[in-house]
Amino acid sequence: MRLQYPTNIKVIQLPCSGRVDILHLLRAFEDGLDGVYVAGCMEGDCHFLTGNLKARRKVEYVKKVLESLGLEPERIEMYNMSSAEGPRFAQVANEFYQRIQELGPSPVPKAQAA
């Protein structure tokens, strides 16, 4: 398909969105990243039954943490899409990129590259 999506989105692969941890998400913000989204399978279609539902709850938790830190909770989001939906993956990437562009850079300074 060779679909285009913004090049500054760094994809981190996990065996299941349920593997994502609150700490993974928070560490991204600690390093000064401007936004994070979790792309899980469609709800009801999890190979491990509830992985994507658990991921959503962790994302909701981190939204609350960001709010209490005075950061916009919109900087983190959960999206559901099927692995067969390439165009949707690119569309979500563009959507989220637009959202972060509008929010501007995170007030947390970027970590120095090792």
């Binding site: 609150i22 700490l23 928070l26 600690e30 943490v65 830190l69 005075g70 950061l71 947390v108």
Partner: peptide, 12 residues
């Protein structure tokens, strides 16, 4: 989680 959150707050 708490230490990371506190570090974010301080950096911010």
């Amino acid at each position: 989680i708490l230490a990371t959150t506190l570090r974010i707050a301080r950096k911010k």
